[in-house]
Amino acid sequence: MSKSEPSVAQAPNGVKMETRNVNISYGSNQAIRDVDLDIADRSVTALIGPSGCGKSTYLRALNRMNDTIDSCRFEGHILLDGEDIYGRGVDPVEVRRRVGMVFQKSNPFPKSIFDNVAFGLRIGGEKDKDVIAERVEESLKGAALWDEVKDRLQTSALGLSGGQQQRLCIARCLAVWPEVILMDEPASALDPIATAKIEELIRELREQYTIVIVTHSMQQAARVSDSTAFFYMGELIEHGKTDMMFTRPAKKRTEEYISGRFG
């Protein structure tokens, strides 16, 4: 497969993140090969592909979460507003403050709803109680969860339903004011109604945030994303506007995948 050209499918707002020559391997197993991809600001980019194609690995590279995996080796450059997040002297902690992440399985802390959302602020050194309260409310509203939980902010987050927990995780992520939000199959464990709510939320968040979402559901990618990148066997096969990708894919493999021949 030929090396994909850096492409900006649709960038009315400019480019937020640029990926150059990214290679990622686990031990001797190369998970991502020579990926170049530009992520447009304040838009939703969907990463699709059969399972094991490396899309989650790539996603975790965007905020250096792969650093926590011992055997994982990264080569290449990922630029955030033109600055290399893998550059010398760059603190991965600072990267993660600006590039937040929502995981496949909702993972609220076994703390109260309030404390979950306030966590990122507190560890960031925010001490002012009023500021924290204000930001918690703002974030919960931003994640469309406020009305459901405003009367029980001090109860355990583990008492929420699966969909609510996932929206809580989104709220928790919003509270630290990230610029980019990475979502790793955020609705895969949810029922259709909860999924619809998350998707609606993603469309709203696009107004303010750059969102990169990994999904195994083509329909979901079509519903929420502006542009779509198709990964296969660790390589980026094609990247383009979502509506173009789903109607007139440029590459044969993409067409095969989208029409359901494999994956």
Partner: peptide, 15 residues
């Protein structure tokens, strides 16, 4: 302690 909790914390920018 589940790994997911550590991941969540790190992804929020915790050291």
């Amino acid at each position: 302690v589940p790994r997911e909790l550590r991941d969540a914390s790190l992804a929020l920018g915790a050291t």
